[in-house]
């Protein structure tokens, strides 16, 4: 144990939209997964920093080259600056955790399932520089670990770029136990943008505004109230009813999720299928969509009794799980890594 006290364990959730860190020293921080570099000398003077993160990137988006490295769940190695951006995000998160100088850092990093499959080496390269020992796991697994859902459970992590499904059955989930869909938060944004353009062709709005409306008003099923927002028309702010469009866009991801859920359960050992159906957990930003838990539970009802719940803290569920894994993993395993 004395050896463990000299270490700082950190859990990092490297998400498509938001990344978070939970550290053994009690720090919990998050940033939006955007990185921006000033476009030129003038831009560098304007922004005053060599590299920007999160909301600052959006604020100065006209002056910086914006990179969202894990958009759609994978790092685009060699095509743009994705790998470099991942490195910057990790460095920044670790700085936010405030480690004591000279203290060794052991990190568990959760990444989207597809990224774990495709970008294994790139992730290691990006993270290894800042930590002394490193473990990479899939995001839904780290969420499951944080909740203690080690057996007969299904985690549906609805992120921005991807929805990751992961069945837990008492061992580390393999590729067969995980599935990734592109129907996720960004997909809803695209749908909402296009529905609104269709209905209000003269109104002017951008993807960022659409994303904010989604985060504020998203729902499936029956609306609690009409959703009305101000959108400029020929420069003049006009109140628009976007209730039907928000509903349609949010519900557009559901068929794929229901289909994948039923397929994943169906391919599992029949003896355990009922148990998994009663132990489904929604995580990620998508779990905050109003009514989604009830919808999925209803959709699965005809297959047998089902219970769907949502994680209480979607922003930190992944990094908390990664930290828990880091702290509980035997010291001799860390030595090998």
């Amino acid at each position: 144990m004395s050896q463990k006290n000299d270490l700082l364990f950190v859990g990092i959730d490297l998400g498509t939209s938001r990344s978070s860190i939970s550290a053994g020293n009690g720090q919990r921080q998050w940033i939006e997964s955007y990185v921006g570099w000033p476009k030129d000398f003038v831009a560098a003077q304007v922004v005053g920093k060599p590299v920007l993160f999160g909301s600052e990137v959006l604020e100065y988006r006209l002056s910086v080259d914006v990179c969202r490295p894990l958009q759609h769940g994978i790092i685009k190695e060699g095509i743009d600056r994705s790998e470099e951006a991942v490195k910057e995000i990790i460095r920044h998160l670790i700085e936010l955790a405030g480690p004591d100088e000279g203290r060794e850092i052991h990190a568990v990093v959760g990444v989207p399932s597809d990224s774990l499959k495709i970008n294994k080496l790139a992730i290691r390269r990006a993270v290894a520089e800042f930590v002394d020992s490193l473990v990479v796991v899939s995001e839904p697994f780290s969420v499951a670990y944080s909740l203690g859902l080690l057996n007969n459970a299904l985690v549906i992590d609805i992120g921005a770029g991807t929805t990751d499904l992961c069945i837990m059955h008492g061992t580390l989930p393999g590729e067969d136990d995980q599935r990734t869909l592109l129907q996720a938060g960004d997909y809803i944004d695209d749908q909402l943008f296009s529905h609104l353009q269709e209905r209000y062709p003269r109104s002017t709005f951008n993807k960022n505004m659409v994303r904010q409306w989604k985060e504020q008003f998203s729902f499936v099923g029956d609306p609690a109230a009409e959703i009305k927002v101000m959108i400029p028309v020929d420069g003049k702010p006009v109140l628009h009813d976007i209730t039907a469009e928000v509903k349609r866009a949010c519900e557009s991801i559901l068929p794929a999720i229901v289909e994948a859920t039923t397929q994943m359960i169906a391919r599992f050992d029949p003896e355990f299928q009922a148990k998994i159906r009663r132990n489904i957990v929604l995580a990620g930003g998508g779990s905050l969509i109003s009514g989604i838990r009830e919808y999925l539970q209803g959709a699965l009802k005809e297959y047998g009794p089902s219970a769907v719940s949502c994680v209480s803290d979607p922003l930190f569920a992944g990094s908390d799980g990664a930290l828990k894994l880091a702290q509980e993993m035997p010291a001799q395993y860390w030595e090998k890594l």
Binding site: K120, L121, R124, L134, V135, V136, V137, Y145, L150, N151, I167, H169, G170, T171, L172, P173, G174, D176, D177, R267, F268, D269, F272, L325, E328, M329, P330, Y333, K336, L337
Partner: peptide, 30 residues
Amino acid sequence: MKQAIFRGVLEENLELLGHTRPSGRVRGRF
């Protein structure tokens, strides 16, 4: 179960580092 998971995590990450899996691992029950 946790022991099995730790072993799995270790094997997978060692594999990333270029080591071969120490032992065959059964994924799933079926």
